[in-house]
Computed example of a mutant assay.
Amino acid sequence: MDRKTDIIDIKTLEQVPTVESIRKIQRERTLKLVFDNSLNNQREKIGKNLERELSGFQVGIHTIEPEINIRKLITDKEIEDNQDFFEECAKNYRLLGEKLLFKLVNNLDLKLNKDFPLETFNKLKQDKRQTGRIENWRYFVHGFHCGFENNKTAQIIEVPLVFGLEFGDLDPYFFTRFIKSTPKYLPLPVEIHEDYADGVRINEKMISLGKFEKISSNVGNHYGIVVTDREKVEIKSHEQLDKLYKERNKEIEKPKFDFWKFIRLKK
């Protein structure tokens, strides 16, 4: 659903809406404050103050246009009332991500590094296999993810590659895009207007409810968020992988046993 925009021209400071009045705006509407040139030098200060005061809102201070855009984000109550829905979405995300990834691995005849899948998929970035098609899906390897888009339904999912065999990491932006592009979820039981900002609030509230939890990744100082009710898998840390690779390299660098040299030394 597209939001309607209410525009207020600000020619004097007295025309700036109070925090109390802004809190009453509906999620279906955007409030746009357009500042007169004489007040534009105070616009950023006013915007920063609104950011501090308006918890649960997105306050956008435009860098070029003389305006501030204010949007109410999904509320704690809306998330709590729909927690079963978001939990189901998270479980489906995990299942579909795993299914598509292994389908691609088999299709391309890849030898998957189960401890660190990114190593396997990074090699695809060096040739023409970085993008392609598999059945009804178009795929694209990028960053820490392999993205998939269904050619028929337009469903979108980004499968993480830095959590071992855990493919259910719920990046807030990718998670909400998955929800909004999945036909069987439509119409949504609750509107998601801001893909990233609403996604962050959904994840944070679901963690507080015990439905989601944080996990560490293969990459240092990087974590993910997954559904709590799942079959847990081991995720090796950056330190564990580093140690593992060093041990493997030592094995590779060991001189091969020379049987004939051994015989000569015995003589």
Rank of each mutant, 00 (worst) to 15 (best):
K128V: 11
Q130Y: 05
E87C: 03
S217L: 11
N92C: 03
V19F: 01
R264D: 13
I25K: 00
D229K: 14
K72P: 02
N49E: 13
Q26F: 13
G164K: 11
K214Q: 12
R29P: 01
L165K: 14
C89E: 07
K254T: 15
E231K: 15
Y173H: 11
K214T: 03
V105A: 03
I207R: 01
T63R: 14
L161M: 10
L104P: 01
S216P: 08
R230Q: 12
Y93G: 05
E78W: 09
F262E: 09
K48S: 10
I61N: 09
Y185M: 09
R29Q: 08
I215W: 06
S38F: 03
I207Y: 00
Y196E: 13
L108M: 07
P172C: 13
K205I: 00
E51D: 10
K256H: 12
Y139V: 14
G97W: 06
G224A: 06
L39N: 04
T30E: 05
K48E: 15
N82W: 12
L54R: 02
T30R: 05
G220I: 14
G47F: 03
D6I: 15
E44H: 09
V59F: 03
K246D: 14
F175Q: 07
L186Q: 15
E135P: 00
F178N: 11
T153P: 03
